[in-house]
């Protein structure tokens, strides 16, 4: 565990808290892509199946349970409790165009052809693109609430901080995992346009709105 890794995990935790806070306090999931949230739920369920087979540390186990629980909870809030506020007319990204190629790629490029390993690889690849329906929704409506922008910034920062963690681990521990690194780079690059808008607009007190 190094400072980048810890900061990344905390950023991820902050993102989850911000999203739940937004939905809970506004009693609405307007502006949030249910499709991205379904993809994230699939990501964490398929990645943390090793909760039952492999104990790393109490920290690791608690975080895994929080990530799986909160992603399933968010899907519940969006599709059950606050269903009426879900803006599905603007959430039109076709997730099968992500799920099928990602499933194919995880069967082709993985560390080991075993069930847990392929599901882990699938989850890493899927996470890298899971935000696309949300970014597509923001670009379609042309705006996002401030708290949704903060959520996206924290969520994007988490993998960017993991990249620094991997640089650190490569130099000081000789550890590197090409699958996680390539997927992490792709994931972070997808946020670049949003990061730019966040810094130039939201941090200056303006609402995140895209030019027409």
């Amino acid at each position: 565990m190094n400072i980048f890794r810890l900061a990344g995990d905390l950023s991820h935790l902050l993102a989850i808290i911000l999203l739940l806070l937004k939905i809970w306090t506004t009693r609405s999931c307007a502006g949030v892509s249910g499709k991205s949230q379904i993809l994230f739920a699939i990501v964490y369920v398929t990645r943390y199946l090793d909760l039952f087979s492999n104990f790393v540390s109490l920290y690791n186990t608690v975080m895994k349970i929080v990530f799986v629980g909160s992603s399933l909870g968010t899907v519940y809030l969006m599709y059950m409790k606050f269903k009426a506020t879900y803006d599905h007319n603007h959430d039109t990204f076709r997730i099968e165009f992500l799920l099928l190629p990602v499933a194919g790629l995880s069967l082709l490029i993985n560390h080991d052809f075993s069930v847990l390993e392929i599901l882990w690889t699938f989850s890493i690849y899927l996470e890298s693109v899971a935000i696309l329906p949300q970014l597509f929704m923001v670009s379609k409506t042309g705006e996002a609430e401030s708290i949704t922008s903060h959520y996206l910034f924290a969520l994007g920062s988490y993998r960017a901080l993991y990249l620094l963690n991997w640089v650190y681990r490569y130099y000081f521990e000789g550890f590197w995992d090409p699958i996680a690194i390539v997927a992490g780079v792709v994931q972070t690059v997808l946020y670049c346009d949003f990061f730019y808008l966040y810094v130039t607009k939201v941090l200056k007190g303006k609402k995140l709105s895209l030019p027409a």
């Binding site: 090793d50 087979s53 790393v56 540390s57 975080m63 895994k64 080991d112 390993e117 882990w120 963690n165």
Partner: peptide, 10 residues
């Protein structure tokens, strides 16, 4: 190799 048994990241 970063296998199932050695994965420590989230």
């Amino acid at each position: 190799r970063y296998s199932v048994l050695t994965k420590d990241e989230l």
